[in-house]
Design a protein around this nucleic acid. Structure first.
Length: 866
RNA sequence: GCGAGAGUGGCGGAAUUGGCAGACGCGCGGGACUUAGGAUCCCGUGAGGCAACUCGUGGGGGUUCAACUCCCCCCUCUCGCACCA
C-alpha cells in the first residue's frame, strides 16, 4: 500500500532514503528550553508510560477467541520506504486515538502493524545501489518501526507481519491457487498497459491519466500473455454491497460505483453482408435502433485485424489503423478531440429492417469498453452526430421529445421521448420501446438485454523480481500446471540479475527456472512473473489474527469473530485499488466458505494529508517535517496534540511549526495544574476511582458550583467529539478545561475541594486518548490505581449541568441588544415581561409598537418592533 | 464536459434541528517580571467609528421574527471521472 510513500520518488524511483535534515525550526534550543522541560518532564513521562503499557500488555491480544468485546482497529500497513514524516504520523495517531478510546470504553482492541514490503522501490534500489532488495527492505522496516515505537503508538508488535516474508507470501501464493482452482485466475493474451520506466505491465487501476501511477511515465500498450484475476465475475456484488457500507465516506463509495460502471442496455448483432461474421455492439439505447445509420469499430477490434490480414481493408482505413496504433503506443490517452474515421469496406445488415448500412473504423470508439463496436445513432448521440456531420452520413430522427427541445438538426437530442420513424414501434415511449425492440431482436436471435460493466479483470502479472512468485509451471507435455499446495512457498531466489530488461529478473536464475511437472513428473519451467503487490495487501487484514500459523493462511474462527475490521484508517488514494481488491478477495473467500462475512471493512476513515507551504509533504518536494527532532524537543504528546488540533482529521491541513508551541504550552499548563492539585491534597490523596461519589459534598453555589458545571459541560462536549472523531474540537475542549481550572485556581479557589478532584479524574481520563503519556503520568501522580487505560471512560452528570437561572440573549428585530437572566423554569409570559422590561429593549421599542415576541426556550428572545 | 466537496479574521480553524458569527490555538499590539526575553503572567486583537452605532461568513437575489446554515442564479478552488456507446 503506502502509495503516498512511493509517490515520493516520482521520476527517480528507488532513491536511497535518508533522514531529511529539517532546518525549519524557528528557534534553537536554549536555556529556557530546559526550564520548560523541568516544568513538564515529558521524556520521563514517556519512558514510564511506555514501560507500564508493555509490562501490562495493555494492547496485546493473547487469545483472539477469548478476548471480550472485540474491536479491530487497523491502519493501512505502510510500504517501508525508510522514513516517516509528520504527514504519515497523522494517519497512525488517528488510529492510536481510536485504539486507546475503545480500550478505555472496555473493548479488547486488536491493533496490529505490518509491512507492505514487496514492491518496486526496493528493486530499483538494488539496480542503482547494488543493495539486495531484501536488505534494503529490512533496513527500512527497522528504521520505520523505531519511529513508530518512538511515537509511542500502541501496536501489538507480537503480530507484526511483512508481505515479503516467505511465511507470508506462501499464503499469497495459496490465495492464487485457490482462485485458480475456482476458475478466477486465468492466463490470457491481450492489450495491456506497459510502463516503460518500471519495465512491467500495470493493472487498469494503476494507470492514471495515461501515466503510471507510481513513476509518472507515459503508459504504452503492448500485446502480452498475462495472468488475470476475474474480478468482473464479482462486479454486481461489489457494486451492490456498497450500499451496506454506510460508514464509508460517500466519496469513496461514489468512486467505486463509477469505477465498476454498471450500465443497462442490450447487445445487438449486425450480420456482415456477404459473410458469416457478425458485429456485436452494446448500447444503452436500444430504443434508438431504427435510427442506426452506420456501425463503428474500434481500430483495435479483432475484425479489423482480420480484414487487414485478408487484404480486404481499404487503403485509407489501413493507414488510419496504423496511425492510431502508433499514436496510442506513444500515449493511449491523449485527448483526441477531433473525431477521425475511415470506411471499413464492408456493410452491415440492420437486424430489424434488413437494410445495409456502412461500417466505419473510428478513433472515438474504444476497444476496452462494451464490445469495442457501436451502432451509431447520429440524431440521438452527440458523438455520432459530430462524426456523421463530418463524414456526411445519414441522420435519422427516431425519438421525439414529448416536451422541451427535440432534435433540431443542430445537435443530437439525447433525451427520451416518443418513438418516430420506427415502423411498428412508432408512438411507444422510450422505456416501452426499449423492451419491445429487445424482444423483437431476441425473437430473431439478433440481440438480448445485457448489463455491461466498465470494470475490467485485474491483471496481476508483473515482470519484476521483488514480489511473490506466481506458483505455476509450464510442462511441455501437460501445459500450464499449478504448483501443489504442499510445495509452497515457491521461494524467491536470492541470486538474480537486477537489470531492467522488460523481462522478469527471475529468468536469469536457471535453478529457479527448472521445475518438475506436478502432473507427469517431467521437466517443466517455472512462471517467472511475480504478483502485483496489491495481491499481498488484499488479504493481510486476515493474517493478523494468526500471524504465525504455518498450516493456514488465516484462522476462520477468529477472523469470523473479529472481522469486518471495525475501524480502518488510511489515505483516500486507495479508494479504488486496495479497497476494491480487498472487497473482491473477501467475497471470494466467503463463497469458498473460508469466512462468513462479505465485506472486510465496516468503517473507513480517510484522513486528509498534511501540506507544507501549500503543497503535499513529500521528500521530493523537500518540504517534509521529521517527527524525531520535534519529539526530542517537545515530547511525543505535543506533536500528537498539535497534529490532532491542526484541523478536522478528514480534511487536508497546513503544518505550522509555530503551532506546535501552542500544544506544548497547553501540556505545560496542564502538568502544572496536576502538580498544584497533587501538592494541595497530598500525593495519592485524591479519590479518583470512578465509582466513588462525592454528591454529599458538592457546593451548591459560587465558584465551585460554576466550575463543576463547566467541567461537566466540557466533558459532555468532548465525549461527543471523540465518538465522532472530531478530534480537533476535542483538543480545543481540553484546552478550555485547563483554562477553566487555571482561572478557578488563580482567583483563589480551594484546590482541595471535591470538585477539583472530580475535574481531574474526568479531565485526565478524557485527555488519555489524546495525550496518553502525559495523562498516564498525571493519573499516577494524582493517586490513580493502575494504568489510566483500565480506569474506565467518563460520563457527564446531568445533575451537574443543572442551573437555577439561565441567561437568554435579547434580540430586537433579530439583532442582539442585551441579555437577561431568568429562572430555569420560567414560563413564556414571565420571560416576555422580563424581556420587555429590559432597558435596552425599551429604548429600542420607544415610539414603536411591539409586533411580536419570539421566545426560543433556553436560547433567546427576539422582540419584533415596528 | 459530468459527478462530489469546499469558499468564514493576518493564519489553522469553531458554530446540534436556522437562534449570540469568529470558540480554541497561532500570530500580532500593549503591559508586568527582568541585565535581557525568543520563557512566564496579565490585557487587547473581524472592519469602520471618539462614541452611540454601522458593516461583516466568495458575489447577487429570495424565504424567515431570525440565514455561515434553507431556496434560485453566478464566480473561484480542490478532488474524482472523462469520446463509457
Amino acid at each position: 500500500m503506502g502509495k503516498s510513500i512511493r509517490d515520493e520518488h516520482p521520476g527517480q524511483p528507488g532513491t536511497e532514503p535518508s533522514v531529511p535534515p529539517d532546518a525549519s525550526h524557528p528557534v534553537p534550543p536554549g536555556a529556557e528550553e530546559s526550564s520548560r522541560r523541568n516544568a513538564y518532564p515529558f521524556h520521563e513521562l514517556e519512558r514510564a508510560a511506555r514501560k507500564l503499557w508493555k509490562d501490562e500488555a495493555l494492547f496485546e491480544i493473547k487469545d483472539p477467541m477469548k478476548a471480550e468485546r472485540p474491536f479491530y482497529c487497523l491502519n493501512m500497513f505502510p510500504y517501508p520506504s525508510g522514513d516517516l514524516h509528520v504527514g504519515h504520523g497523522r494517519n497512525y495517531i488517528l488510529g492510536d486515538v481510536v485504539t486507546r478510546l475503545k480500550r478505555m470504553q472496555g473493548h479488547s482492541v486488536l491493533t496490529p502493524m505490518g509491512w507492505d514490503a514487496f514492491g518496486l522501490p526496493a528493486e530499483n534500489a538494488a539496480i542503482q545501489n547494488q543493495i539486495h532488495p531484501a536488505t534494503w527492505t529490512k533496513k527500512n522496516i527497522a528504521r520505520m518501526k523505531e519511529q513508530l515505537v518512538h511515537w509511542g503508538l500502541a501496536y501489538d508488535w507480537e503480530r507484526e507481519i511483512a508481505s515479503c516474508d516467505p511465511s507470508y507470501y506462501k499464503w499469497t501464493q495459496w490465495l492464487f491457487l485457490k482462485l485458480y482452482e475456482r476458475g478466477l485466475a486465468y492466463r490470457a493474451k491481450g492489450a495491456v498497459n506497459w510502463c516503460p520506466s518500471c519495465n512491467t505491465v500495470l493493472a487498469n487501476e494503476q494507470v492514471v491519466d495515461g501515466a503510471c501511477e507510481r513513476c509518472g511515465a507515459t503508459v504504452e500498450i503492448r500485446d502480452l500473455e498475462q495472468w488475470y484475476f476475474k474480478i468482473t465475475a464479482y462486479a454486481e456484488p461489489l457494486l451492490h454491497d456498497l450500499e451496506q457500507l454506510v460508514h464509508w465516506p460517500e466519496k469513496v463509495r461514489t468512486m467505486q460505483t463509477n469505477w465498476i460502471g454498471r450500465s443497462e442496455g442490450a447487445t445487438i448483432r449486425f450480420p456482415i453482408e456477404g459473410s458469416k461474421d457478425t458485429i456485436e455492439v452494446f448500447t444503452t439505447r436500444p430504443d434508438t435502433l431504427l435510427g442506426a445509420t452506420y456501425v463503428v469499430l474500434a481500430a483495435e477490434h479483432p475484425l479489423v485485424a482480420r480484414l487487414r490480414e485478408s487484404g480486404k481493408l481499404p487503403r485509407a482505413a489501413s493507414d488510419l489503423v496504423e496511425r492510431l496504433r502508433r499514436a496510442r503506443m506513444e500515449n493511449r490517452f491523449a485527448v483526441e478531440t477531433e473525431k477521425e474515421g475511415a470506411e471499413a469496406g464492408i456493410r452491415a445488415v440492420h437486424p430489424l429492417t434488413g437494410a445495409t448500412i456502412p461500417v466505419w473504423i473510428a478513433n472515438y470508439v474504444l476497444l476496452g469498453y462494451g464490445t469495442g463496436a457501436i451502432m451509431a445513432v447520429p440524431a440521438h448521440d452527440q458523438r455520432d452526430f459530430e462524426f456523421a456531420t463530418k463524414y456526411k452520413l445519414p441522420i435519422v430522427e427516431v425519438v421525439r421529445a414529448t416536451e422541451g427541445p427535440a432534435y433540431d438538426g443542430a445537435a443530437a437530442y439525447e433525451g427520451e421521448g416518443k418513438l418516430v420513424n420506427s415502423g411498428a414501434f412508432d408512438g411507444l415511449s422510450s422505456a416501452v420501446g426499449k423492451r419491445a425492440i429487445v424482444e423483437a431482436l431476441a425473437a430473431k436471435s439478433a440481440g438480448e438485454a445485457r448489463v455491461n460493466y466498465r470494470l475490467r479483470d485485474w491483471l496481476i502479472s508483473r515482470q519484476r523480481y521483488w514480489g511473490a512468485p506466481i506458483p505455476m509451471v509450464t510442462c511441455e507435455q501437460c501445459g500450464i500446471q499449478p504448483v501443489p499446495e504442499s510445495e509452497l512457498p515457491v521461494l524467491l531466489p536470492d541470486q538474480v540479475e537486477f537489470k531492467p530488461t522488460g523481462e522478469s529478473p527471475l529468468k536469469t536464475n536457471e535453478t529457479f527456472l527448472r521445475a518438475k511437472c506436478p502432473k507427469c513428473g517431467g521437466a517443466a519451467r517455472r512462471e517467472t512473473d511475480t504478483m502485483d503487490t496489491f495481491v499481498d495487501s488484499s488479504w493481510y487484514f486476515l493474517r493478523f489474527l494468526s500471524p504465525k500459523n504455518d498450516r493456514h493462511a488465516f484462522d476462520t474462527a477468529s477472523v469470523n469473530r473479529w472481522l469486518p475490521v471495525n475501524q480502518y484508517i488510511g489515505g483516500v488514494e486507495h479508494a479504488i485499488l486496495h479497497l476494491l481488491y480487498s472487497r473482491f478477495i473477501v467475497k471470494v473467500f466467503r463463497d469458498m466458505g473460508f469466512v462468513s462475512f462479505s465485506e472486510p471493512f465496516e468503517r473507513l476513515f480517510t484522513q486528509g494529508m498534511i501540506t507544507k507551504n501549500g503543497i503535499k509533504m513529500s521528500k521530493s518536494k523537500k518540504n517534509t517535517v521529521a517527527p524525531d527532532d520535534l519529539i526530542e524537543r517537545y515530547g511525543t504528546d505535543t506533536v500528537r496534540l498539535y497534529t490532532l488540533f491542526i484541523g478536522p482529521p478528514e480534511k487536508d491541513a497546513e503544518w505550522n511549526d509555530r503551532g506546535v508551541e501552542g500544544a506544548f504550552r497547553f501540556l505545560i499548563k496542564y502538568w502544572k495544574l496536576v502538580q498544584d492539585v497533587a501538592a494541595a491534597s497530598g500525593p495519592g490523596a485524591l479519590p479518583l476511582s470512578p465509582g466513588r461519589s462525592h454528591s454529599g459534598a458538592w457546593s451548591q453555589t459560587g465558584p465551585r458550583r460554576d466550575l463543576r458545571r463547566r467541567v461537566h459541560q466540557l466533558t459532555s462536549q468532548i465525549l461527543t467529539d471523540m465518538d465522532r472523531l472530531h478530534l480537533n474540537t476535542a483538543v480545543s475542549g481540553m484546552m478550555q478545561y485547563v483554562n477553566a481550572l487555571d482561572e478557578y485556581r488563580d482567583s483563589g479557589g480551594d484546590m482541595t475541594a471535591p470538585e477539583i478532584a472530580e475535574a481531574m479524574s474526568l479531565g485526565t481520563r478524557l485527555l488519555a486518548p489524546l495525550a496518553p503519556n502525559t495523562a498516564e503520568g498525571a493519573w499516577s501522580r494524582l493517586g490513580g490505581q493502575g494504568s489510566i487505560f483500565t480506569a474506565g471512560w467518563p460520563t457527564a452528570s446531568k445533575e451537574a449541568l443543572e442551573r437555577d437561572t439561565i441567561s437568554l440573549v435579547l434580540q430586537v428585530n433579530g439583532k442582539v441588544r442585551s441579555s437577561i437572566e431568568v429562572p430555569t423554569g420560567a414560563d413564556k409570559a414571565a420571560i416576555e415581561s422580563a424581556a420587555l422590561a429590559d432597558p435596552k429593549v425599551r429604548s429600542y421599542a420607544a415610539g414603536k409598537t411591539v409586533a411580536q415576541v419570539i421566545i426560543v426556550p433556553g436560547r433567546l428572545v427576539n422582540v419584533v418592533v415596528r
